[in-house]
Amino acid sequence: MGSKLHALLVTATLALGSASALAANECSVGKTLKADRLTVATGNPAYPPWVMNDAPESGEGFEAAVAFAVAERMGFDQSSVDWVRTSFDEAIQPGAKDFDFNLQQYSIKPERLEVVDFSEPYYTTTIAVVVREDSAAADTEATASSLKKLKYGAAAGTSSQPFLENVLQPEQATLLYDDNADVVAAISANQIDAIVFDLPSALFVSAVQLEGGKLVGQFPVENNEAPDNFGLLMAKDSLLKECVDEAIKSLHEDGTLKDLESKWLADATGAPVIDMDK
């Protein structure tokens, strides 16, 4: 909290010292789309737990909260942030952007880096276990040893399968499928007890695809051998990148991101971090 205060103080000092920039700190001056305002984009609609109630202005939800935290570090208070909506694919195309940064679970990928810029990662995906609420597996404890007893299914060719094989090593043979929809069909048919996905997919599956889906837990992030890193998307060669990176770095360092993650992606979703030693 100390550094947060410090940052606010710095912002305040800078604001006092600069006539043109009322709120923004030095690094972002003149680099935003609109002077003294930060335009942030998210999906249309935006889903929980990333944005609660499709209302990012509220700051409720992981990405809404991250956006405001970054804005704050860059010297924009809540009222200086404008929200706009873009579709996922549209934002990732080359060309001019109508936002300063866009966040809707964009993974940082080399091929994307050729047409857009990404900030430092604000989130690294963990792997989560999904079961059916009405099955015996729903009572499984969030420990490695009890999770090993379940029968798993996974989509072949995703990182889930090597994770099961190399990290969790369940007792029964894993069944493999073409895609997530088939894995969901298999768990619906009770042919498997549990599915592992990266957390974002797990959230989507349990909310949308699998009726009565339940997250048993998520594995500590270091167990993910092929994690996705989410970054804030900006236009190619964005002048803001340095400033945004600074903000994210400081949010990492003071533990803000970790706090937000546990608030919105573990507590709010009911996916506790799995104890690997039990």
Binding site: G153, A156, G157, T158, Q161, P162, A173, T174, L175, L176, Y177, D178, D182, A186, Q191, I192
Partner: peptide, 19 residues
């Protein structure tokens, strides 16, 4: 049958291909 779960030859080859 590999499409509905069993890891037989085709699926195993598919897994190795991805890996």
């Amino acid at each position: 049958l590999s499409f509905i779960g069993p890891v037989e030859l085709l699926r195993q080859a598919n897994v190795y291909k991805s890996l």
